[in-house]
Nucleic acid binder design. Sequence first.
DNA 1: CTGAAAGCGCTAACAA
DNA 2: TTGTTAGCGCTTTCAG
Lengths: 334, 334
Amino acid sequence: MPATIRDVAKYANVGVGTVSRVLNNNPSVSDETRLKVLAAIKDLDYHPNPIARQLSTGRTLTIGVILPYLTMPSYVERLRGVQRALAGTEYDLILFSVESPAQRDAFFEDISRSPRADGILIISLPPEDQQARRLANSQVPVVLVDAYHPELCSVLIDDIQGGRMITEYLIQLGHQKIAFLGDYLETPFHPSMRYRFQGYQEALQEAGITYSPEYLAEGTNERSTARRLAKQLLSLENPPTAIFAGCDTQAIGVLDAAREMGIRVPEALSVIGYDGIRDAEYLNLTTVEQHLFDSGVEGVQLLLEALDQTIPEPRKKYIPIELVVRGTTAPPLA
Amino acid sequence: MPATIRDVAKYANVGVGTVSRVLNNNPSVSDETRLKVLAAIKDLDYHPNPIARQLSTGRTLTIGVILPYLTMPSYVERLRGVQRALAGTEYDLILFSVESPAQRDAFFEDISRSPRADGILIISLPPEDQQARRLANSQVPVVLVDAYHPELCSVLIDDIQGGRMITEYLIQLGHQKIAFLGDYLETPFHPSMRYRFQGYQEALQEAGITYSPEYLAEGTNERSTARRLAKQLLSLENPPTAIFAGCDTQAIGVLDAAREMGIRVPEALSVIGYDGIRDAEYLNLTTVEQHLFDSGVEGVQLLLEALDQTIPEPRKKYIPIELVVRGTTAPPLA
DNA sequence: CTGAAAGCGCTAACAA
DNA sequence: TTGTTAGCGCTTTCAG
């Protein structure tokens, strides 16, 4: 049975209030009694019960992080940023991993009301309007990372600009036949893929290149799916000379396809990814670096500010992106 | 101000005890009052306060996970297993990320006594004797994953056997000049590298091959360091025909070195890693698969059992390893 | 089957 | 500067 504050008080011949004051570094304790109490704490190997403290103060000293199941490297990288930013603070991190839309909804429902955490960080899970309203009206501040809703604070990446950036770069290299291979655009789950595609279309249009629907390949976010889709693209009568993959994992699938079909990269085919995961570096893949780590750090920053202030007006913060040119892109064969 | 159990009781014209019983599915409540209470709960949008419940019951419904900062993919993979195994249970996961030995010690100290969590999972952080004793004597059950101490439950991998397995395989392919490139062996932090090296030495000895110290390269666990060390090994007067890298990341550095030096893999050099991270698959790297995910799952399993039983006798569970032969190993050139 | 009341371990307001 | 006491919101006896 661990010692309680009462045990310490009795042992030191003081009241529990005094012990509490010592615990919380309240200056109005004489040095003498302070020492007495500290000695008692040591003798009894006393450690305050955080749960009791939480109930009493109303603060949990905990930040809840809700994110999709850790399969994608990009989630991990963001989480790492969160972790790091939290390390210097007094807050612990409690992790809620979402494995299905139903579970996501359940978390959103629950968390907004029960004071399990003093603040909530939601990563890569855009809430629906009604959920966002609940979250906004709840007692705990909420910050979205890699997701957006007008009523909430968010840290995000301009995916439209990213899509443009990639496409413009390819056009500038001389490519005209540029395919887009990404997730299903229609999924309501996360719109970033749609935005990247939008940027792609805008850049094409501005360059006077007609968008060709046969250059759009949609599929699940898996290497093998991407490989299959890339093979289809490359088997077209008039195949693309460059493929813009919606994420690095898909770009890797494209590289697989090219290798298997004997198509040389970057000579005969330019491939470009999106994300900047570690694998991209290993594979010398040209990509758009998203600074995922920083997005986690910034998310925490925003949350901590919201915890301080009483006015959590919805703020937006953009993380800049950056084109990283590596070895999988080159001018077309002419 | 969120509604409390008292509000609900008042609203439904019952005692708080009854509301509590409804909340906890206590059968001794008449259907009539139950419905009345449920209606009140709904009307007031009441959600029980988990903190108060925790203080009252003494259970936090939380599992604490202590692990090194999430830089290495292997930690993430193990965490993912933990996550998954916990998903079906009533437990949440609170994450303590260790960024320094001092912080590790602090966590070990603190956590063993304060009931922040009902159980603790420690990943890849072997405790010292004194710490282990404290942990073993504390109220909360503790399970080590990828770490061992006689006084505690643990889930581990037989690294000696892994080192042997790799070395025997290379010998069987016909290699005689086998180098070992790994972390500094003398670090007291985590001994797995030492064990792998030990397996390597044992296998050499059993095959009658004399161990040559110049075939040992030690360095930090980074791709670039490994590349540098590999270059040194390959520049020896009598260079190895095979390199056993202590982990996949280091193996990737070795591949870098070979590429830069124009040494063909696997024809002129066999390279083998350890871990089975995703990158290994991308790069077609022969490696020892550790089933990292499973180690997390098993750790949770052990912990949940310990939470049920009152007798937490220290148990050990080995996760089998598996040699995955891919494209970076072949017989030597003869 | 149900209400009242006593804690869980701590903080903080109030007296002294 | 200190001790006492009233909660924090819930669970769980104990009567009834």
